[in-house]
Nucleic acid binder design. Structure first.
Length: 799
DNA sequence: GTTCCCGTTGGATCGAGGTT
DNA sequence: AACCTCGATCCAACGGGAAC
């Protein structure tokens, strides 16, 4: 029911007050919660009473996002807009919508009633169910709604039902796409609509996805497609309405140059995005859709539960919902503060430099970033080109010397690794520098400035269901917080700082977490080998040094060469401690071996990574496998197990192919991958078995996913112990938790560390604390003296 | 009115960057 | 190996203007 008057409203509230389960969904006028977007309506479904309500508050309020371009730069007067090309839909739409909306009844409820709705929201003991909870939670929280006691997310359920929806093909209903239109399969007006034949949904083989409507259609829920269809019709009607309105105003300067065209030209300029522009529609047009949303969410949840029960994953589902709500969402709410001045300062420094390099390369040689052209250039004899660099003024002197040309050069890729072979060429030096500067400026600093809210807080998106293995992923308009560069001359993390001086920045990193877990699973749980790696960990041996020395990397890779010869070959400077330098380099190679060979690494991989020939790599692999026999066996074990069809944990009569992660009980299921797909490469038909490919990764998924699980569940335990006044995590970076602790509560970190390692695993886990010497996220270094670190409020105790 | 060329768009794709 | 984002290129669609 689309609630429209006080009587209906009061009645709806009494039902909500009595409900123990509330399925909820928020429609908004954009995605940027806590900045310029906000809820327009709230929908709930109360499964106990089979009642659904829609509360419209702000239909008609919002801004059409205008994408300005080079020919229509920001600030262009509407009457002077350039109309060439297909674009300007959004500009046109926004302009006419504003005029049209001036005297339209959107059928909203008075905004003062919002407070009454809040009063019955988040009551004790009530579970709220969402589809993609983090979005709705942010919208509700920003609007001032109380936080629910407990939540469930059907996206989380789907992730447990099948970790890799995108990776498998499923026969399912579909909506027409632009591509279908261009192929003549459907009419232009049908794009975005469910494909039907004689009133029945058509199906086709396609990649799976977790969209609510798609899932509902896939499982054949009643009303799965009705809401979409109704909304589609409403949108089409609305587009017609706006077109007519525009046509009724031929004198309007904005129609200059357009009005004499046929009306369908104008009609084509008015194109609503169903989701993004929903706020433009009066609530009466949208309520049906919005209410169906919550009903379908409930149906989806009911569909998932028995499956989760069959898989013995009900407890994990509850646990992961808690991680989602109490860890991931809390991280997103916390965020980190952007030192705007520093970010702007950094950008002001970078932009002219980027410009200079752009100019120098662009004008003289080719468009920068054109990898094809760059490759052509480097592959040709142009490397002997007379041009040897026209350096920008600021270019450091030491980078102007020792230049080289490379006659007859050849390279197959233009990535950093390949360019390294030509790094004394002036052009290559400038390209490498350009890419680095551009990366800092665009991917990170600019985005943060854009994404920060009024208090200069940037919030990373932390996705608990972002990966197949169970790790978190990170995305959103503040970018990926799991890959911000902090080494190799980057200083951009300096722009990220504590909220205020009462907060101390810290990071808790597990020590070699994945290797320890792999050793535990392979050597203890499966009993392969003789606890070789486990014992080394327990005796505190440096694993990489051990591998280096036992395998004798130096003699195998560089037989009979002197230290000086090897270092020269490696391109290392010959300083006063050549032996130590060589030892460090060989330890690095030991590390590469340990990490690569723990899983499915081969001599091909090793020879590529270490840049050695295949024969030498084969020798190294052989010796390593002798040394740690458990891991190749674990690989074979999981590969084999995952290809064996057998009963599901709580439903022995139902068969599936899967492996199970210890502790969490999370499964990696591969029976739904196809066993054979074909594709064309250079006109030749080739075959590929996705199921076998997935089975080869299952061993890797076990320690990797388990690591993510231990880290985030430890975070959950810590978060339940300490509230937001004391402890604020803001990111999970796979095997690390980054956050802030209040300066008066610093000793609690000791307890958080013991929570993190409190898992019944052999070898035991270790965790290292890092603090920030300079107070920014850039300057993290290991804390050696915990008490001093606490006493000095994070200023000392590092070394 | 038709044809051609050019410039402006946006979508798809590719390849690069970075972290663990 | 996984993840996410950005930018360049290619491509196709389309508008506008010139030439016919």
């Amino acid at each position: 029911m689309n609630v429209q008057d006080r009587e209906q409203f009061d009645d709806a509230l009494t039902w909500i007050e009595r409900a123990k389960i509330v399925v909820a969904d928020v429609e908004s006028n954009g995605l940027r919660h806590r900045r310029n977007h906000y809820p327009i309506s709230f929908s709930v479904y109360l499964p106990e009473f089979d009642k659904s309500f829609n509360f419209p508050f702000r239909h008609g309020e919002g801004e059409v996002e205008v994408h300005w371009s080079a020919s229509n730069p920001a600030g262009t007067d509407f009457a002077e807009a350039n109309w060439s090309g297909r674009a300007k839909k959004c500009m046109y739409l926004g302009y006419w919508f504003k005029k049209w909306a001036a005297d339209v009844d959107f059928k909203n409820l008075p905004s003062t009633w919002l407070e009454d709705l809040k009063a019955v929201w988040g009551l004790p003991g009530v579970t709220y169910i969402f589809h993609n909870a983090r979005f709705d939670l942010h919208m509700l929280d920003a609007e001032g709604f109380p936080s629910p006691d407990k939540i469930e997310d059907t996206m989380m359920a789907l992730h447990l039902v099948n970790e890799d929806w995108g990776g498998m093909s499923i026969t399912a209903p579909f909506t027409w796409t632009l591509k279908d239109k261009s192929r003549g399969l459907c009419q232009p007006g049908q794009v975005g609509q469910w494909a039907t034949l004689d009133g029945k949904l058509m199906t086709k083989r396609q990649k799976g996805n977790r969209r609510l409507k798609w899932q509902a259609a896939l499982h054949g829920f009643d009303g799965a497609t009705e809401g979409e269809t109704a909304l589609h019709k409403a949108v089409m009607r609305f587009e017609e309405t706006l077109t007519e309105f525009a046509l009724l105003h031929p004198e309007d300067p904005y129609n200059k140059g357009l009005i004499q065209k046929k009306s369908n030209k104008i009609r084509s300029k008015i194109k609503l995005d169903k989701k993004a522009n929903m706020w433009m529609l009066p609530s009466s047009e949208v309520a049906y859709y919005a209410e169906l949303d919550v009903v379908l969410t409930w149906k989806l949840r009911e569909w998932c539960m028995p499956i989760l029960a069959d898989w013995n994953n009900l407890e994990l589902y509850e646990n992961q919902n808690a991680v989602l709500y109490e860890v991931a969402w809390r991280m997103e709410c916390n965020g980190i503060k952007l030192n705007r001045a520093h970010a702007e300062e950094e950008l002001a420094k970078l932009h002219p430099m980027i410009e200079d390099l752009h100019w120098a390369i662009n004008k003289k040689v080719f468009k920068i970033g054109a990898h094809v052209k760059l490759k052509e250039f480097l592959n040709s004899s142009v490397l002997e080109h007379e041009w040897m660099g026209e350096w920008p003024e600021w270019w450091p002197g030491n980078k102007k010397v020792d230049l080289k040309i490379y006659p007859g050069a050849y390279l197959s890729s233009t990535n950093k690794e390949s360019l390294k072979d030509y790094d004394d060429h002036p052009l290559v030096r400038m390209i490498v520098e350009y890419r680095k500067l551009k990366m800092s400026a665009d991917t990170y600093l600019t985005n943060w400035l854009e994404a920060a809210d009024e208090n200069n807080i940037v919030r990373p998106g932390m996705n608990p269901d972002g990966t197949n293995s169970g790790r978190f992923s990170s995305s959103g308009d503040a970018g990926n917080f799991q890959n911000i560069p902090d080494r190799g001359g980057y200083t951009i993390k300096r722009a990220l700082v504590p909220y205020d001086p009462s907060w101390i920045l810290f990071a808790l990193d597990y020590g070699q977490l994945e290797a320890r877990l792999a050793a535990w699973v392979a050597e203890t749980l499966l009993g392969f080998g003789n606890l070789e790696m486990t014992m080394l960990f327990e005796n505190g041996v440096d694993m990489h040094v051990y591998t280096r020395d036992i395998v004798n990397i130096r003699e195998v890779v560089y037989p009979g060469m002197t230290t000086k010869q090897i270092l020269t070959k490696l391109g290392e400077p010959l300083d006063d401690k050549p032996e130590a330098l060589l030892a460090a380099r060989c330890r690095g190679m030991g590390k590469t071996m340990n990490f690569g060979l723990l899983y499915n690494g081969t001599e091909y991989m090793l020879s590529a990574l270490l840049k050695i020939d295949k024969e030498t790599a084969r020798k190294l692999v052989y010796t390593w496998r002798e040394l740690f026999p458990a891991f190749a066996k674990a690989q074979a074990y999981f590969e084999d197990l995952s290809l064996t069809s057998r009963g599901m944990p709580n439903a022995p009569e139902k068969n599936a192919k899967y492996i199970t992660q210890p502790i969490s009980g999370r499964h990696r299921k591969i029976h739904r991958y196809p066993t054979w797909v074909t594709f064309y490469e250079n006109g030749i038909r080739k075959g590929f078995n996705p199921q076998e490919a997935a089975s080869r990764k299952t061993w890797n998924n076990v320690p990797q996913g388990l690591g993510g699980y231990l880290c985030t569940v430890s975070g959950l335990k810590a978060n339940r112990l300490y509230d937001n006044d004391e402890l604020r995590f803001f990111a999970n970076i796979h095997d690390a938790l980054d956050g802030f602790v209040n300066r008066d509560n610093m000793p609690i970190i000791k307890n958080v560390m013991s929570i993190m390692i409190d898992w019944d695993i052999r070898p035991g886990l270790t965790v290292d604390l890092s603090g920030s010497k300079d107070g920014t996220w850039q300057g993290m270094s290991e804390v050696k003296d915990f008490d001093l670190w606490c006493d000095s409020k994070g200023k000392e105790g590092y070394d």
